[in-house]
Amino acid sequence: MKHSTYTMGIDVGSNFIKLVLMGYDGEPEILDKRTEKIRKRDPAALGDEMVQSMLERNGLKYEDIAYLASTGEGDMVKRKRGHFYGMTTHARGGNFFFPEARTVVDLGALYVRAVRISTEARVEDYKMTGQCASGSGQFLENISRYLGLSIEEVGDVSLTSTQPEVSSGICAVLAETDVINMVSRGISTPDIIKGIHVSIAARIIKLMSSLKAVSPIVLTGGMALNKGMIQAINEALAESSKGFEVRTHPDAIYAGAIGACLWGGYRDAKLREKEAQRAMEAG
């Protein structure tokens, strides 16, 4: 074993499971990471399978892991030592990417959540989009599927738009009807996709404003890797004159899993300390 301590973080989303392995010798280091689309599999079994294969790939045994932490919908994950709430782990993940970050915006599949954090990654306040689906990654994915695009293509396609067509509907159901109309009106695929990005970007900025977000703001979650989305956000920011400074990180999709790893490591150390103290008191 190369490192003195290992932790794993597993973030179960509604579409993907994200798994990260970290090692510690002083500064934490990401040793391995993996995402897997759930499809119609049992997330608990799939998660466990992912953990097992990552352990094997890194020549580790389950016993070598000081803390396996779950987050997201990961409360059903087997063999975990503890579970952290998604907001807590995204806050920590954002802080890991940019220690000076004061706001984390998690662009999830089902909602967008803006979280204001302290420099120690403690959650100070948060705002979430409602239960409505039209501001979320899932909606974007559904639309791209109708348009015959894979989710990986969406970002690049969006960048080629010349005249984005913004959907009027706030409700996902109405917006979907809108998109069907656009197609029949002959609007190009890039313009439709960009239009959706623009409308989601507007909602994200509204969320940031209502939270009184503090810069720098770091974007996490699956949608944060979408180039078209990022460009739409940057364009909207330039127009809004709010002066928000937004950053992205190539590991954005792993923010939750990384946060879980790190908090797991923190808890492990804290529990050891307590144990030592108790042993000392016992004489």
């Binding site: 503890g82 579970h83 952290f84 709430y85 907001m87 807590t88 403690r122 908090w263």
Partner: peptide, 15 residues
Amino acid sequence: IKEQAGTFSDSIKLW
């Protein structure tokens, strides 16, 4: 409820 209990649990475990 899960969200609130989760936030509560985290705040005690971490802070």
